[in-house]
Design a protein around this nucleic acid. Structure first.
Length: 764
DNA sequence: CTAGGGTTAG
C-alpha cells in the first residue's frame, strides 16, 4: 500500500545534520533548553500535598481563575490533564483561551504541555499551531509532536518533524529515537529505520529499553524476526513492553510456538504480564488452537484482575470460538454489556474460520449461517461494519455459495466506501469466483485501484477453476508485467489452468519457471495439478511415473486422483495397484474410502469391498454424511440424502421423478454409486424405492423456487458422484438453466450440458 | 513520551 512518504524517506536517505553527527557519544545528550527544571516543579506540586488542584470541579476551577487573573501555571497543567482524561479538545480550548488572556502562554512549561493536550485529544492542527508559536522548543516539545503524528496516522510527518528537530540542533533522547522508529514501523520503512538503527549502534545505546522495544517492533513488522529477536536480546532491562513486543513479534511472523516460549521465559523471570501481554498470548493460542494453554491464560487474566477489560474478553471469546467451544463463546458474547466493533468482528471472523476447519461439513454450513445472523444483528445495532467485517462476511458468503447475500454486501461496501480497501476488494473477487460468477469477479478485479499478490492470485485461480485457461495464463503474464512476484499459491492456479486444458508443455515449462526463476519449491498441490493433467488426458502411465519420481511421499489425494482416472479410463490393473499403495498410507479422508469402495464395487471385487469396509471401521471414521445446501432469497436450505423433511417435499420428489424420466429419454442412465451413508444402509435393509443424493434434491428445490431463467447454485460437502454429475448436465439442457455445484474438491459450473470441470477429475 | 489483538488467494 503506497502512502505518500516525505521526500527524505522515499529515496531511503535520511540526512542527519553533520553537526549533529559530531555530537557527544554519551547516552541521552543534554539539551540546553531542557525541560528538567519545570518537570521537577510539576512533579513537586503533585507530591507536596499542599495543593490538590485535581480535586476541584472543572468549571468551578475555571470560574475561580476568571476572578483571579494571576494563576499558578501548575493549576493550568492540572486542568489540562483533566481535558486529556476526558478527551475533550473543546474544554482544552477554553483553558487555552484563559491562558492567552492571562499571558501565561509565554510560560514554556504551560505551552509545551498544551501541545501534549492537543495531541492527546487528537487535534493535530491545534497542536501544530501551539508548537509553531512556542517561545522555544525543547526535546519534549519535539517528541510530543512526533508522537502525535504517529498516533494520528501521519508517520511521514513525524519523520519530517524529527528531521526539523535535528536541523534545529536539538539532540534526540531515547524516547525521541523510539518514536522515530515507531514512525518507520508505521511507514514500513526499513531503510530509514536502519539509518536510525545505525546511529543507535554508533552511540551504543541499543541496550536502552525504549529504543530496543521500538527496534524489536520495527523489525517484526518488516518481517525480519531474527533482527527483531536480536534487538530484544540487546535490551539490558527488559520490561513488560519488551516481553510483550517479542511475543507479538513471533506471532506476527508465524512462529506462535516460539512466542509461547518467550512467554514462559518471561514468567520465569518474574515479569508480570499486563493486559497487552495477555491478549498477545491469547492470539498465539488462537493460531495454535491450543485451548489448554488458552484456558490457563484465561485464569491468569482473572487472577491479575484483567478479566473485565474488553480486549481481554474479546480475545478469550475469539479463542473459544476458534477452538470450537461455540457455547462458551456465545455465552460470553451475549453476556457482554458493552461491546466494541472488534467484538462483533471477532465473532464473525471466528465463525468464518470455523468453516475453514470444518471443511464442507454440515457444521460449516451452520457456522456460516450463524455468522450471517451476527452480521445482520450488527447492522441493526448502533455500530457500523468496517473493512474487517466486510472481508470476513464476504468469505462466509463464498463458503456458503450465497451469491444473493454476497451481492447485497457488495452494495453495502460501495455505499460505505469500504470497497476501496484492497482486502475487501479481494474478498469480493473470491466471493464471486466461489459462487460461480466469473464475470462479476472479473469486473470487480478490473475496477480495483490497487491489487496485491493475493488479488492477482485469487483472480487467476478463479479463471482456472472456471476452465478459462487462456485468460488465466494471460492474467498471470499481466501480473508479472506489473512487477508482482508470484508465490507458491499463484503457481497452483497457473498449473491447474494448464491441467484443465491438457496443456502439458506449458504446464511443465511453468513448473520449471517456478523452480528456476522464482526459487519456489514444489509442494503437494503442484504435483496434484500435474498428475491431474496427465490423468485427464488418459496418460495414466505418465501420471504414475510422475508420482514415482516425486521427492515427497505422495498424499492420499494424489493417489485418489490416479485411482479416479483409472476408473474413468478403464485401467483397472493400475487402479488396483494404486489402491494398494494408498491403503498403505492408512487414509484419514472418508471420501478416499468411498472412492475405493466404488471402484471395487463396480469391478465386482466383493472381497476387497469388505476389506475396505473393515479398514474404515478400524480407522473409526464413521460414515460419510452427504449434505447439500442452497441459498434462495437470503435463506439457506439444507438437504440430506432422501430428505423428506421439507414442506415442499411432495413437489420436490414429483418434479425429480419427471426430470429423471425426461433425462432417460435423452439417454441418461442412472448409475449406482455408493455413498456409504446411514441412508445407504437403510436402503439396503428396507429396499425402499428411489435413492437420491442430496444435490439432486437441492437442485430440484432450486428449480421449483426460482424464476425460470435464474441460475441455480448448490454447495455440497463431499465430492459429487458420477451419476449426479451426468444427471445435472442433462438437467441443464432440459431446463435451459445454468447450474453451479461446488463440491469438496471442485467447482462445477454446468451450462448447456457442459461442465467447467472439463468433465473429468475426482468424481466418486 | 512506551502499545493491538478483528480481514483476502490453495
Amino acid at each position: 500500500m503506497a502512502s505518500s512518504l516525505p521526500s527524505v524517506a522515499v529515496n531511503g536517505t535520511l540526512k542527519l545534520d553533520s553537526d549533529f553527527r559530531k555530537q557527544p557519544s554519551s547516552f541521552l545528550p543534554t539539551d540546553k533548553s531542557s525541560n528538567v527544571s519545570y518537570q521537577r516543579s510539576y512533579v513537586a506540586t503533585h507530591l507536596d500535598g499542599t495543593s490538590e488542584p485535581k480535586s476541584l470541579d472543572f468549571r468551578e476551577a475555571l470560574s475561580m481563575m476568571k476572578e483571579n487573573s494571576t494563576v499558578e501555571s501548575t493549576y493550568y497543567v492540572s486542568l489540562l490533564q483533566e481535558c486529556i482524561d476526558k478527551n475533550s479538545a473543546a474544554e482544552a480550548q477554553m483553558v487555552h483561551a484563559h491562558i492567552i488572556k492571562t499571558g501565561s502562554h509565554g510560560d514554556l512549561f504551560v505551552s509545551t504541555f498544551l501541545v501534549n493536550v492537543y495531541v492527546k485529544c487528537g487535534t493535530m492542527e491545534n497542536a501544530r499551531k501551539v508548537f509553531d508559536n512556542l517561545p522555544s522548543r525543547n526535546v519534549v516539545a519535539w517528541t510530543t509532536l512526533m508522537t502525535g503524528y504517529v498516533h494520528n496516522l501521519k508517520p511521514e510527518l513525524a519523520i519530517q518533524v524529527f528531521l526539523e528537530m535535528l536541523k534545529a540542533g536539538t539532540y534526540p533522547t531515547n524516547y525521541t529515537l523510539g518514536i522515530a522508529l515507531n514512525a518507520c514501523t508505521s511507514l514500513h520503512s526499513i531503510k530509514v529505520g536502519e539509518q536510525i538503527h545505525a546511529y543507535i549502534i554508533k552511540y551504543r545505546i541499543d541496550f536502552d529499553t525504549s529504543i530496543g522495544n521500538s527496534l524489536c517492533t520495527l523489525y517484526a513488522k518488516c518481517r525480519d524476526l531474527e533482527s527483531s529477536v536480536k534487538a530484544f536480546m540487546k535490551i539490558r532491562e527488559k520490561n513488560v513492553i519488551s516481553w510483550t513486543g517479542i511475543i507479538s513479534a513471533c506471532g506476527d511472523n508465524g512462529e506462535a510456538a516460539r512466542g509461547l516460549q518467550f512467554f514462559s521465559e518471561m514468567l520465569s523471570e518474574d515479569v508480570e504480564p499486563n493486559e497487552f501481554t495477555l491478549t498477545s498470548v491469547l492470539s498465539l493460542c488462537c493460531v495454535m488452537l491450543t485451548l489448554g494453554v488458552g484456558t490457563q491464560v484465561h485464569s491468569l487474566s482473572i487472577k491479575l484482575g484483567y478479566e473485565s477489560i474488553l480486549p481481554i474478553k474479546n480475545s478469550i471469546m475469539y479463542l473459544y470460538l476458534k477452538c470450537g467451544q461455540v457455547k462458551e463463546a456465545q455465552t460470553l458474547f451475549e453476556g457482554m454489556e458493552t461491546v466494541s466493533l472488534i467484538t462483533w468482528n471477532a465473532m464473525i471472523a471466528g465463525y468464518a474460520q470455523m468453516m475453514d476447519l470444518e471443511g464442507n461439513d454440515l457444521s460449516a454450513y451452520q457456522s456460516g449461517n450463524e455468522a450471517l445472523n451476527i452480521f445482520s444483528k450488527l447492522n441493526r445495532s448502533d455500530m457500523k461494519p468496517d473493512l474487517f467485517t466486510f472481508s470476513s462476511i464476504l468469505t462466509v458468503c463464498s463458503s456458503l455459495v450465497a451469491l444473493e447475500q454476497g451481492e447485497q454486501i457488495h452494495a453495502q461496501t460501495i455505499k460505505t466506501g469500504f470497497l476501496s480497501d484492497v482486502v475487501v476488494g479481494t474478498a469480493l473477487i473470491n466471493m464471486y469466483n466461489k459462487c460461480g460468477s466469473i464475470e462479476k469477479a472479473s469486473k470487480a478485479f478490473l475496477e480495483m485501484s490497487t491489487r496485491t499478490l493475493i488479488s492477482w492470485t485469487s483472480m487467476i485461480t478463479g479463471l482456472a477453476q472456471h476452465g478459462k485457461t487462456q485468460q488465466a495464463l494471460q492474467l498471470f503474464e499481466d501480473m508479472r508485467f506489473a512487477g508482482v512476484r508470484p508465490n507458491q499459491i499463484t503457481f497452483v492456479g497457473v498449473l491447474s489452468a494448464c491441467s484443465h486444458a491438457g496443456m502439458v508443455d506449458e504446464a511443465l515449462s511453468y513448473f520449471e519457471m517456478m523452480q528456476k526463476e522464482y526459487k519456489i519449491k514444489p509442494v503437494m498441490d503442484h504435483f496434484a495439478c500435474l498428475i491431474d493433467m496427465f490423468v485427464r488426458l488418459g496418460r495414466l502411465d505418465e501420471a504414475f511415473n510422475f508420482i514415482e519420481k516425486m521427492d515427497i511421499e505422495p498424499s492420499e489425494f494424489i493417489w485418489s486422483i490416479l485411482i479416479a482416472g483409472c476408473r474413468s479410463h478403464g485401467n483397472l490393473e493400475l487402479g488396483f495397484y494404486a489402491a494398494e499403495q494408498l491403503l498403505k498410507l492408512k487414509p484419514k479422508d472418508i471420501e478416499t474410502y468411498v472412492l475405493l469402495l466404488n471402484m471395487y464395487l463396480s469391478a465386482g471385487r466383493w472381497k476387497d469391498v469388505s476389506r475396505v469396509k473393515k479398514l474404515m471401521k478400524e480407522e473409526k471414521l464413521g460414515k460419510l454424511k452427504d449434505w447439500s445446501w442452497i441459498s434462495i432469497k437470503g435463506k439457506v436450505y439444507s438437504f440430506k440424502p432422501n430428505d423428506k423433511s421439507h414442506p415442499q417435499n411432495v413437489d420436490i420428489y414429483k418434479s425429480l421423478e419427471n426430470l429423471i424420466d425426461e433425462a432417460k429419454s435423452l439417454g441418461y442412465e442412472s448409475l449406482e454409486t455408493l455413498m456409504v451413508t446411514d441412508e445407504d444402509e437403510e436402503k439396503t435393509s428396507s429396499s425402499s424405492s428411489a435413492h437420491y443424493h442430496s444435490e439432486k434434491l437441492a437442485v430440484a428445490f432450486g428449480l421449483l423456487n426460482t424464476p425460470s431463467a435464474a441460475p441455480i447454485r448448490v454447495m455440497k460437502n463431499v465430492i459429487m458422484c458420477r451419476d449426479c454429475h451426468n444427471f445435472v448436465k442433462i438437467i441443464s439442457l432440459l431446463t435451459d438453466r445454468e447450474i453451479t455445484i461446488r463440491d469438496s474438491k471442485r467447482l462445477h459450473k454446468i451450462v448447456n450440458g457442459r461442465c467447467s470441470c472439463g468433465d473429468f477429475g475426482g468424481l466418486l
